[in-house]
Design a protein around this nucleic acid. Structure first.
Length: 569
RNA sequence: CGGGGUGUAGCGCAGUUGGUUAGCGCGCAUGGUUUGGGACCAUGAGGUCCCCAGUUCGAGUCUGGGCACCCCGACCA
């Protein structure tokens, strides 16, 4: 490709909107251009990178028996109603109508469609297992697109779906996808860690996320450097340290005692008022969960993990209750507690044991001393619903846990029977009995992966592409193109390399050396080859790796060979 | 959805108490001089000042409404 005719110009200054390094470089290096919030067009340079990433994915998915296919973005709403997701998912699922007022959705993922296909095609256990995948556009009306290609409303995803006879067969297959994913990221030049994850709206029995560690990541991760435990904070379990102090055990009961606490509402204020540590208080948070008011009680030094709570309640429609809803339940914000609350489900974090706590009295400006569970209130459920925090220890090895930020680039799920059951995807087992098929699903965001690779591979001059995904293998720069010998040698080199199957970006423009070198550094192709008066006087061309500051001369008659070797290495 | 910010040439920005023909840098075009790390000179093209309504003799500037984009949070695979 000749830069003189390449569609898309590099920018000296990035648009002010770009804050992330990847966002900035994607714009400056002319990889992509914004169309609307979270919606981008790829320019030729960026699209070549996507194609490279796709090729790696196809190779790895095919290797574990995947079959590539393709499913529509425009889906009848009916399928999404069958699984209930039409109602369970909020406005990020775009719902539209056609000319005949028929309801459609724009697919944000394809479980419904593949499961519909599976129930039509699948008859016998002999057809199992199978895995199909596609590389497709997904549409999600994100509340807040951000970070350039990191969080988009229209994005590219490689999604894969596997079907198995039973849980055991799924469990046996799952690690091969995990390994394929590790291979994809390794081959793309991205260092990732995998963490235990919350399946969220996808449902299912187990899931892992592949995370690139980055301070600008949206996800918080809990990591134990000792034993390797790693989890998204949404799913993370950690050792809630035992309480220390004067609080009495249940054996030494004191009666409940009311205390006037005018205006003392937060745990922070309570610790100051009583001069006691936060863990001596019982914090009660009221939620509306699927239309029902729920009181969630947890030790004062801990925070509620809403993902865990949603799972404990088996309800994904979770939000904090409004003041009116709380008043209707007969309590008041800042002074709530499960003690004496009527007609409200109580979920208790397992950190709350038989010790004495100070809790709200469900009336203004009053707290209760010596609240004991289960003496003074009942819980409908006791579960781990606490958010893991820095300072806590690892449940597996006792080491201190670490909190890091990460960008999610891939996610694998054991879906279980959620979709196959809802849509009736069944087969006949060897005994001739009809059974429901079990599923797994696996996704990687291509745009986000591209952005993540740049986040991890750049310097102050520009992108440093790993060879495997670089848009071209060689950046050929001719300095001083009005010199007939320079342009002649460069032209010939360009054509010869091309004929050898080497992908060359040829800077044939009439620009100064500085402009060409800076563009080469910005675009970030692994090998730079320079032809100039200076190199020709030595009968040579100059080779330089993007990763290095050093360069060396290669004689003209050996240049093709040397460069081709780099190309294909 | 809540909070904050920004909309003026392709990009980055300036534009005074409302006052003539809206500027600067980069980029772009043409010509010339240059040529190993974002050259220089000259000439030139390029603007619904986000949109609508209003106030005013007069609006980029003031008022009201709307829209778009960015950042933080909430939400989310």
């Amino acid at each position: 490709m000749r830069i003189s005719t390449l569609f898309g110009r590099t920018l000296r200054q990035a648009p002010a909107e770009a804050e992330l390094a990847s966002h900035n470089l994607i714009l400056r290096a002319a990889l992509a251009r914004p169309l609307s919030a979270g919606i981008y067009s790829y320019l030729p340079l960026g699209w070549r990178v996507i194609r490279k990433i796709e090729a790696i994915m196809r190779d790895e998915m095919d290797r574990i028996g995947g079959q590539e296919m393709h499913m529509p973005v425009l889906n009848p709403a009916e399928h999404w109603k069958e699984t209930g997701r039409y109602f369970a998912i909020g406005p990020e699922l775009i719902r539209i109508k056609d000319r005949a007022e028929r309801e459609y959705v724009l697919a944000m993922t394809h479980e419904e469609i593949i499961t519909d296909l599976a129930r039509r095609e699948l008859r016998s256990y002999r057809q199992l297992p199978f895995m199909v995948y596609q590389i497709q556009t997904k549409i999600r009306d994100e509340a807040r697109p951000r970070g350039g290609l990191i969080r988009m409303r229209e994005f590219l995803m490689k999604d894969a779906y596997s079907f198995h006879e039973d849980q055991q067969a799924l469990d046996e297959y799952y690690p091969s996808v995990y390994q394929a994913y590790r291979n994809i990221f390794a081959r793309s030049g991205l260092r990732v860690i995998d963490v235990e994850a919350d399946p969220g709206m996808m449902g299912g029995t187990g899931s892992h996320e592949f995370m690139m560690l980055s301070d600008s990541g949206e996800d918080t991760l809990v990591i134990c450097s000792q034993c390797g435990y790693a989890a998204n904070v949404e799913a993370a379990r950690a050792n809630k340290k035992d309480r220390v102090g004067e609080h009495q055990r249940l054996e030494a009961l004191k009666p409940l005692e009311g205390v006037a606490t005018p205006g003392v509402k937060t745990i922070q204020q309570l610790t100051e008022f009583f001069t006691l540590p936060a863990q001596d208080f019982l914090k009660t948070v009221l939620y509306m969960a699927c239309g029902e008011l729920v009181a969630v009680a947890i030790r004062g030094d801990l925070e509620v993990n809403e993902a865990k709570l949603a799972r404990a309640l088996q309800c994904s429609d979770l939000r904090l209750a409004s003041d009116e809803e709380i008043a209707r339940a007969g309590t008041v914000v800042g002074f709530a507690s499960p003690v004496g609350l009527k007609n409200v489900r109580v979920v208790l974090d397992d950190s709350v044991d038989g010790d004495a706590f100070i809790a709200g009295a469900n009336k203004p400006d009053t707290h209760l001393r010596d609240v004991h569970y289960p003496r003074d209130f009942a819980a409908d459920a006791v579960a781990d619903i606490a958010l893991a925090q820095a300072g806590q220890t690892c449940l597996q090895c006792g080491n201190d846990i670490e909190m890091r930020r990460g960008i999610e680039v891939g996610h694998t799920f054991k879906l279980g029977y959620k979709y196959s059951e809802a849509m009736g995807a069944k087969f006949l087992n060897p005994e001739g009995k009809e059974v429901i098929v079990i599923m797994g699903c696996y996704g990687i965001g291509l745009d986000r992966l591209l952005a993540a690779i740049i986040e991890q591979n750049h310097d102050d001059k520009g992108i440093i592409w790993p060879k495997s995904v670089a848009p071209f293998a060689v950046h050929l720069a001719a300095l001083g193109v009005e010199d007939a010998e320079v342009s002649g040698v460069a032209e010939k080199l360009y054509l010869d390399l091309m004929s050898r199957g080497c992908e060359v970006l040829y800077d044939d423009r009439d620009e100064t050396a500085g402009v060409k070198f800076n563009d080469a550094d910005l675009i970030g192709i692994p090998l730079r080859v320079t032809v100039s008066r200076r190199t020709l006087d030595k009968g040579s061309v100059e080779l330089k790796q993007r990763t290095s500051r050093d360069f060396h001369l290669v004689k003209l008659d050996q240049a093709i060979e040397a460069i081709t070797q780099e190309c294909t290495a």
